[in-house]
């Protein structure tokens, strides 16, 4: 996909959990239509960064700009309405709602009125959800929950999809299905930030790799450049 203007610009971002300094002077630029793979070992600050981007955690200092406008202090629901969709690490399924209700709750046109992802298209993309429309959220397998969480995010017709631990804990066949849909999302021009431990799959599907170590970005460049250097993989990702 061609990538152009900046969609999200982060500069000098600092985030604290109480006295603990988690993100240090972090700067990152995500362009429209770009797929960015965010990598790093556990506890390096990836989820903290994602939660800060969607407004679930406050930043201590620094700037976050969405399409050139400062988003600091904006509530999470406003950021969502501006086109930032979030699939959290635990999937965030509403267990007391049916699959259909989980999807319908999210469904709306995008910020520019786009309706690329309809209820029908999501069900076509995830046929397993179609079979379980009236099941409760708590009755789904891990893979089905992840499909529902991604499908639900797509129904908001976002400009940016933030996907934390895309395939964690999923069987290889289900994970393959998730990677397939991530490729479809990428082809459709939605920008995305992906977090996953499968660095090879991420490298195939992303335009850029970003590696975090102890709350700082230590690598920001081409996925091929990252995986061609086994020393860096060992040092930063432990593989």
């Amino acid at each position: 996909m061609p990538v152009s203007d900046s969609l999200l610009t982060i500069s000098g971002l600092n985030v604290h959990y109480g006295l603990s300094h988690v993100l240090h002077e972090l700067s990152l630029d995500i362009k429209c239509g770009e797929t960015v793979a965010l990598m790093g070992r556990n506890g390096m600050g990836k989820t903290t960064l994602l939660k800060t981007l969607v407004g679930l955690l406050p930043s201590t200092s620094g700037l976050i700009k969405h399409l050139g406008q400062d988003t600091r202090g904006l509530p999470t629901h406003t950021l969502a309405r501006r086109g930032i969709a979030y699939v959290p690490e635990g999937r965030g399924i509403f267990k007391n709602l049916s699959v259909k209700e989980n999807l319908l709750l999210a469904a709306r046109p995008g910020v520019r009125g786009q309706k690329d992802w309809s209820f029908g298209r999501v069900l076509d993309s995830f046929p397993r959800l179609n079979e379980r429309l009236n099941h409760g959220g708590q009755q789904l397998s891990g893979g089905e929950q992840q499909m529902l969480s991604i499908g639900r995010a797509l129904l908001t017709n976002p400009d940016l999809l933030i996907l934390d631990e895309a395939t964690e804990g999923l069987a290889p066949l289900i994970a393959q299905d998730i990677w397939r849909i991530i490729d479809v999302i990428r082809q459709s021009g939605i920008s995305s930030v992906l977090v996953d431990k499968n660095f090879k799959a991420l490298a195939k599907l992303s335009d850029r790799s970003v590696v975090m170590v102890k709350g700082k970005i230590v690598f920001d460049g081409s996925p091929n450049h990252l995986i061609e250097n086994p020393l860096n993989l060992t040092k930063w990702l432990g593989v």
């Binding site: 509530p75 969502a80 965030g92 509403f94 007391n96 709750l105 639900r152």
Partner: peptide
């Protein structure tokens, strides 16, 4: 109703409800 869905969603996961663009406040 849709409002009922929002109420039940808020009961289940407040942060996720907000992340879907719903003003839970």
């Amino acid at each position: 109703t849709r409002l009922g869905m929002m109420i039940r969603a808020g009961e289940s996961d407040r942060d996720m409800t907000k992340a879907l663009g719903i003003n839970i406040g």
